[in-house]
C-alpha cells in the first residue's frame, strides 16, 4: 500500500504550498524499523488533514552524526546543501521525526543562513491534540503501563519534556517514569555518532544499562521519540530476552495503534 504523501516539488508545480514540511531524516527514511514510525507520522498527519510535504529524494543527511563526531566540514557541507534546498522552496515551518534532525535544524542551521520554525513530531502531536484536530481513542491502552524514555536531544538538549508525556497521557494508560528521567534521564547510547561504531572497551553496553533500568517498573510499552533510541532499546530488550513482555514503540506508533490508522 502506498501512503498519500506529496513532495514539496509536487505542491509547487500545482501552484500550492504546504503548511509544514515533514523532515523525515536518514534513519527514518532507510531503516526498516524506523520507516514504520515515519509511516505512522504521515498517517496521523493525513488523518488530521494537515497539509504537509516531504522533500523526498531531495533531502540529504542534516549532518548531525558528522558534527558530533568532530567532522565540522562535512556537517557544514550537508547543512549548506539543505539550506539551499529549503530556502529555495521558501520553507518556513518544519516538523522532524527525529530529535537529532530537530536539534540541528532548529539550533545549528540559523547561523548558516537557514532559519525556520522547527518542531519535533511530539510537539506537533501535542498541538494537534490541543487544537482538537487529533482525537485519541484510548481504549486500547486501558490499564497498560507505559514508560517514556527521554531522547537526549529532545529533553536535555532542548528542554522538551512535557509534549511527549502529554500525548501519552491521552492514551488512558498509566504513564510511569524511569528512575532517571527528564533532565536526569540516561542516554540510550546512540548519540554523538556512537551508533556508527563499536563502543570503547568497558564493562557494559549503555543500551543494556538503560533498558534494565526502564524494565524495573515492568512496563508493557517503552515509548520513545527517536529512531536511534528505538534501535538501542529494542536491542536492549532483545539482549535481556524480554521481547515477549514489552514493546518499544514511538509515540506516533502508539497513536497509530490507538486510532487504528
Amino acid at each position: 500500500m502506498t501512503l498519500k504523501v506529496r513532495t514539496v516539488q509536487d505542491f509547487i508545480s500545482n501552484g500550492e504550498s504546504p503548511e509544514i514540511l515533514f523532515w523525515v531524516g536518514c534513519a527514518s527514511s532507510f531503516d526498516q524499523r524506523a520507516q514504520k514510525i515515519t509511516r505512522a507520522i504521515a498517517k496521523i498527519l493525513n488523518s488530521c488533514n494537515v497539509s504537509f510535504a516531504v522533500l523526498g529524494t531531495e533531502e540529504v543527511c542534516n549532518g548531525d552524526p558528522a558534527k558530533r563526531a568532530g567532522n565540522e566540514f562535512l556537517f557544514q557541507m550537508q547543512a549548506l546543501m539543505n539550506i539551499q534546498t529549503l530556502n529555495g522552496y521558501g520553507i518556513t515551518k518544519i516538523v522532524t521525526g527525529c530529535p537529532h534532525c530537530f536539534n540541528t535544524l532548529k539550533n545549528e542551521y540559523p547561523q548558516l543562513g537557514g532559519t525556520y520554525q522547527v518542531i519535533h513530531h511530539s510537539m506537533l502531536l501535542q498541538q494537534l491534540i490541543n487544537e482538537g484536530k487529533l482525537k485519541i481513542q484510548g481504549g486500547k491502552f486501558l490499564g497498560k503501563k507505559i514508560v517514556f524514555h527521554d531522547p537526549c536531544y529532545l529533553g536535555r538538549g532542548n528542554d522538551v519534556y512535557e509534549a511527549p508525556r502529554d500525548v501519552i497521557k491521552k492514551l488512558d494508560a498509566e504513564l510511569f517514569e524511569a528512575k532517571r528521567h527528564k533532565a536526569n534521564a540516561l542516554c540510550c547510547g546512540a548519540g554523538g555518532a556512537q551508533i556508527f561504531k563499536e563502543s570503547e572497551p568497558g564493562n557494559k553496553e549503555i543500551n543494556v544499562e538503560r533498558t534494565e533500568e526502564i524494565l524495573e517498573s515492568k512496563p508493557d510499552y517503552i515509548a520513545v521519540g527517536c529512531p536511534f533510541c528505538i534501535t538501542m532499546l529494542s536491542d536492549g530488550v532483545k539482549t535481556l530476552n524480554k521481547e515477549d513482555s514489552v514493546k518499544v514503540l514511538d509515540i506516533a506508533e502508539l497513536i497509530e495503534k490507538a486510532n487504528d490508522l
Binding site: 523525515v24 527514511s29 532507510f30 509511516r39 529524494t57 543527511c61 552524526p65 562535512l74 555518532a193
Partner: peptide, 25 residues
C-alpha cells in the same frame, strides 16, 4: 566509513539516495 557514506550517498548508511522516499511504499 560513516563520513564517506554521507559524502557519497548523503546518508550515514549505504543506501541509494534514490531510495530515500521508498518508505511510503
Amino acid at each position: 566509513g560513516m563520513f564517506s557514506k554521507i559524502e557519497n550517498n548523503q546518508a550515514p548508511w549505504q543506501f541509494s539516495p534514490a531510495d530515500r522516499f521508498n518508505w511510503k511504499n
